[in-house]
Amino acid sequence: MADSTVRQRKAAPADEPEKEQTPEKEETSEREETPEREETPAKKTKKIITNIDDEELDPYNPYVDILRVLTFLLLASCGLSYVISGGDSWWWGLKQKPTYMTEPPIYLTLDELATYDGTDTEKPLYIGLNGTIFDVSNGRRIYGPGGSYHGFAGCDAARAFVTGCFGEDRTADLRGIELMYMPLDDPETDAHWSEKELAIMRVHELEAAKQKAHNALLHWVKFFSNSQKYKKVGYITREKDWLEKEPIKELCPPALNGRKKRSVPAV
């Protein structure tokens, strides 16, 4: 016969109260039951970065700096070559090297300069311009014997460059050339102004004429100085008081004939 008696759980002794689970144990049990949370991408990235070696974080590369320096020097060299050659070459292939890169300047008297007028084909062909000597050997056809500008060869004909009188003005004496830009006095025309007005006008006209004469000479100085065909080679030596010993020249006919009367003011 089956045991019909129900086995009952023994009651805990009175002196041993039933143990209650403390909050600490409950929290522990919850942690054991709760699955571990996945880390966010930001935390993962932080962990990865902190694990990289210091050498891998250093971006410095000495070869990059060397390449930058070499590139800068190359560009600077090309720019300097272009400036010095006057736009002739980026790579120092100068067709006509500046005088300071070839030889020191020469110093000649007028008598010495005269021997470089092109008659001696073994010598270079020189012209003088306001005290400066230019080598125009590349233009021997026009500056040499028989050429249209042979009057400029072997001398300082600065005056002729302004007046256009190649034969009469083969000199560097520029005194009085401003008169070619001054208007002619004409009694009929000048009657439109008073004497006081004319005196003031003449002062302004003289200043304007001197500026025109200066600009006319400066034009040729710049032409030869900046030319790729001709080159500056030296200077003319003179006595300090050479100009005072020279008589003042009169304007040559072509320069004198170019003067005009004053313009009559509009009524």
Rank of each mutant, 00 (worst) to 15 (best):
Y63W: 02
T34L: 03
D88F: 03
K44E: 15
Y63N: 07
N61E: 13
S29A: 14
V64D: 11
T71M: 05
N51C: 02
S29K: 14
E32A: 09
E39Y: 06
K46P: 01
L73H: 09
E27M: 12
T71N: 08
E38L: 12
R37D: 04
E38I: 08
Q21M: 14
I49S: 11
T34A: 07
W91Y: 11
E36S: 05
E30D: 09
P35N: 01
G86V: 06
P17K: 08
T22Q: 09
T34R: 12
P62G: 03
V83H: 05
P62E: 04
P62R: 05
S85T: 03
P23N: 05
R37Y: 01
L80N: 08
W91K: 03
E18Y: 07
V64M: 07
A42T: 12
I49L: 15
N51A: 15
G86P: 04
T22C: 06
I84P: 00
K25F: 02
K43W: 07
W91R: 06
K25R: 09
W91A: 13
K47N: 15
I49R: 15
P17Y: 00
P41Y: 05
W91C: 11
E27D: 10
D53N: 12
I49H: 10
D53Q: 11
T22E: 10
T34V: 06
I84K: 04
I52K: 12
S81T: 01
V83I: 14
E18I: 14
P23D: 09
E27G: 06
D58K: 03
W90I: 13
E20T: 15
D53T: 14
S77F: 06
L73V: 15
P41K: 08
V64G: 00
L75P: 02
E32S: 04
D58R: 02
E32K: 09
D88P: 03
E39N: 09
T45S: 13
D88T: 08
E36A: 10
E20F: 13
T71Y: 03
S89C: 11
Y60G: 01
K47I: 14
R37P: 11
K47F: 10
S81Q: 00
W90G: 01
P23E: 10
L67F: 02
A76C: 08
Y63H: 02
L75V: 15
I84E: 08
T40F: 07
Y82Q: 08
P59I: 04
E36F: 03
I48A: 15
E55R: 05
P17W: 00
N51R: 14
R37S: 05
S85G: 13
D58Y: 01
K44P: 08
K19N: 06
K43C: 02
V69S: 04
E20M: 14
I52R: 13
K25D: 08
G93W: 04
E36Q: 05
L67I: 01
Y60F: 12
S81P: 01
D58S: 01
E38A: 14
K43S: 12
E18S: 07
C78N: 03
I66T: 08
A42N: 06
L80R: 07
K44M: 15
T40Y: 04
A42F: 13
T22A: 14
K25V: 07
E24N: 02
L80P: 00
L74E: 12
